[in-house]
Design a protein around this nucleic acid. Structure first.
Lengths: 142, 142
DNA sequence: ATCTCGTTTTATAATTATTCTCATCCAATA
DNA sequence: TATTGGATGAGAATAATTATAAAACGAGAT
């Protein structure tokens, strides 16, 4: 997928972001990547068109894009590892903003359908499912 | 839940881990916590019974426990953030070991049931579900 | 076209989580 | 109990990310 300057301008306007060259190039690099890349990866890509760009700029803009919903963050996670001693089957409900975690019960996964979608060889013996959203507190802050 | 010295000894033996006092206390702290705590949190707790324990020991043992399946890691995540420019509804299949991410399609979530389990006020407007398991490569390495 | 002001970028320092190093210590086994 | 390989503790090292401050930029007013 390719974005025209116009398209980016509209998107940015919709989210109240100023349009800068760096922003456009960073955003386009992510959209064109079709993957799940790190800030460093994006930095490497973007440097091909703007050799002088700073890594901090990449971080700043990725954060902005995520905050305003123009990009998603994979596995939104707290700054630090969390451990769970509960080995009984259960799943997690995680707040994408504050990263709070709650257990969630219930058979809401259709494992038959899921298995059909799994790539060859993927091992789901001990499935852990995490559902990301906004907790009540973060939702009300908005 | 409380673990006896005997129970821990058995568990450790089953996974081929030597039994040390530090290990027992760290493991018990996690089990007793009923939460999703960070290594620092566990460290703070454990220090009450072993003031001389090192933070590195807590990290080492948590890592061991996770590796051998005695504990789970919440949101197993790569060392670095990943971004996703694909805003179309889709979910992720993440390898708990190598943290590789693949998109996964399909309607394998029963949102009706899921909603019933959600706590009051939790916002699932843009649901992102991640299913953790072992990718083919990591599974065969074992 | 020039000026001005608020925003963005850059370069680098600072911070934070985690891992590594290595000397010492201890648990498992003979 | 003696041996020995793995475990611990203290602190250094590393890596990802954020903060800071100065310079550059850009939109609107002149």
């Amino acid at each position: 997928m390719r974005l025209t300057h116009e398209q980016f301008r509209e998107l940015a306007a919709k989210h109240g972001l100023a349009v800068t060259h760096q922003r456009q190039v960073v955003y386009e690099a992510v959209i064109a990547s079709h993957g799940h890349y790190s800030p460093e990866d994006i930095y490497a890509t973007v440097r091909r068109s703007i050799p002088s760009i700073s890594l901090a700029t990449v971080y700043n803009n990725l954060r902005l894009f995520i905050e305003c919903g123009m990009l998603r963050e994979v596995s939104p996670h707290a700054a630090t590892v969390r451990v769970d001693g509960n080995l009984e089957p259960h799943h997690h409900l995680v707040c994408s903003r504050c990263k709070s975690v709650q257990d969630i019960e219930g058979e809401f996964i259709d494992f038959k359908r899921l298995s059909r979608q799994l790539p060859e060889g993927f091992d789901l013996t001990q499935p852990l499912i995490e559902v990301f959203g906004l907790c009540r507190r973060c939702r009300s802050k908005k």
